[in-house]
Design a protein around this nucleic acid. Structure first.
Lengths: 303, 303
DNA sequence: TAAAAATACTCCATAGGTATTTTAT
DNA sequence: ATAAAATACCTATGGAGTATTTTTA
């Protein structure tokens, strides 16, 4: 393999066309420079210079290699500089993953601020389930994920709550209790429920079961669906009722109504959180800066 | 300056994410590899790997530099390969210069053949006077030039005649001798002549003077012009008569007629040559191959 | 306790220096 | 005779090896 030192020496001789001057420029003596160029030519198997004892000139192959050598050093320099900027958090790339939650203002505001502050940082955004995000963070395929509380996690993953919203009851518009301001959960003990499948590990299923048990009954799960939006659609179609995060009420549709929940259960069971998660074993300065930006954008009471 | 050896070592560790395996792959021991990576990190001022004693992973800056390192080695390899091909005459570039002579078949044929045989060789073609071409060849700005016999030349330049054409007399259509099949030069001793300026060194001027002296008179130069086409125009406008290469008669215009010359002078004085010239101090395999191709395309009698 | 990287030291290969010769102008 | 590159030989830096220690999972 040709060392960069040889390239620097070659460029000096090619530019000076004079071994003595080139050696001066390189702060070295002429004989070792002659030897170095000879080594280079031998290793390449190419005659780079046409030498008489009175003058030095580049062969066409040397002329050609001069461009390559300059290019190599240029790319190396730029690569080192860029790597430095990345290590300083000035430049870089972040892969973010999201569950399908689109309307959360403080998060979007934080992202906008971050882009303004770090214009040289690029983003990849992927939608994914909570469990997919946990896997991606573990395997280093993602830098920061926005998800529901994960069932199983792994050491090294860190989470911060960035949104806490109440669980509400979603009813078909024609439901017998649709007229009530708020609904005692016990009143639904004979209703069918729709829910997320347990193996998706979003915790929603468990939370539903625990809330119903606090209300004194075991829910009858009529149908499961992976996407929360799909659950809303199932409620609309009359498959049953559902317990869902309040934010889904914002996508107002006339055939589904959301009502507050009345149940004697711990506050944390009656709320659902949006978390941001990352892998502290994958150090990333810019990711940490983005986390900081998001924390600053949060309403008071989140930390 | 970061040596390529360090890049190779860095890439090995980055790919294996394991100092021992990387060292095996590099056929070296683990401790010097650890030291080398540490040196690299120090020189760059960047932490490239996140090490625990149990695992190694790339930092974002390391991830980024991995791409640069691969790119550097790739360009270096390609550069060496390309330079080898250039030295073997498979690939390359030729800068050709021409005087304004467009209608010479064998030359164009040779160029076509050459392009077919060496498709990886690119060309730059520049029109230039004979003297400009001589300068360009001396300074290495051109590889091969097609020109008239130069006045002053320089050591290292080599020339080969590729075309020999008779000198003819160009007369305005209304000239008193326009009716003659051929014209004794002595008959023009009272006419005005137009000619190329002597300092352009194309030898034309000297040739004109010598021919006239062979015919027993000294020509009266009425007007000089740099371009032979301009001389034809001057003849057409009645500024005088001219001695010109026969090939100019091909650009037939009705207001100028060309007539053979009758004079008792050596044959070489009565002909003008097209030469190809090159600098033998600038070695170029592909140029030599093109010269060979052109010689092969010449009609018999040129060598 | 075991696996893996870091540390400490030793050694030698080779890049570079000095003195000299060769060569072409 | 001189300028410039090549050759010969020497020196010493630093890259690589071996033995050992440290660390943490």
């Amino acid at each position: 393999m040709i060392e960069t030192r040889l390239l620097v020496q070659f460029i000096a001789v090619a530019e000076e066309l004079h071994f003595n001057r080139a050696a001066q420029r390189l702060h070295m003596a002429q004989p070792p420079l002659s030897q170095a160029i000879r080594r280079l030519e031998q290793e390449m198997g190419v005659s780079l210079f046409e030498r008489t004892n009175r003058s030095v000139s580049l062969t066409p192959a040397g002329e050609d290699f001069l461009e390559s050598a300059r290019e190599v050093l240029r790319i190396l320099d730029e690569g080192v500089d860029k790597s430095r900027r990345v290590s300083q958090g000035i430049e870089g790339h972040l892969t973010l993953t999201f569950i399908n939650i689109t309307h959360y203002g403080p998060l979007l505001r934080a992202l906008r601020n971050f882009r303004a502050a770090f214009p040289a940082v690029s983003f990849t955004m992927n939608e994914a389930t909570t469990q997919e995000q946990v896997d991606a963070l573990e395997q280093g395929r993602a830098d920061l994920g926005f998800m529901r509380p994960p069932g199983r996690t792994s050491p090294g993953l860190r989470f911060d709550a960035i949104l806490r919203e109440p669980v509400m009851i979603a009813l078909p518009a024609e439901h017998r209790l649709a007229g009530c301001e708020s609904i005692p959960l016990a009143a639904l003990q004979c209703d069918h429920f729709v829910s997320a499948p347990r193996h998706l590990g979003q915790g929603f299923h468990d939370q539903l079961v625990q809330l119903c048990e606090a209300a004194g009954f075991t829910p009858h799960i009529a149908q499961q669906a992976r996407q929360l939006q799909t659950l809303v659609a199932l409620v609309a179609s009359g498959f049953g009722v559902a317990l869902l995060p309040a934010s889904l009420a914002q996508e107002a549709r006339k055939d589904v109504i959301f009502r507050p929940l009345e149940v004697d259960a711990p506050a944390e069971l009656q709320h659902v959180e949006l978390l941001m998660g990352w892998n502290e074993h994958s150090p990333s300065l810019i990711r940490d800066k983005l986390i900081e930006e998001i924390r600053n954008a949060m309403p008071p009471g989140f930390d």
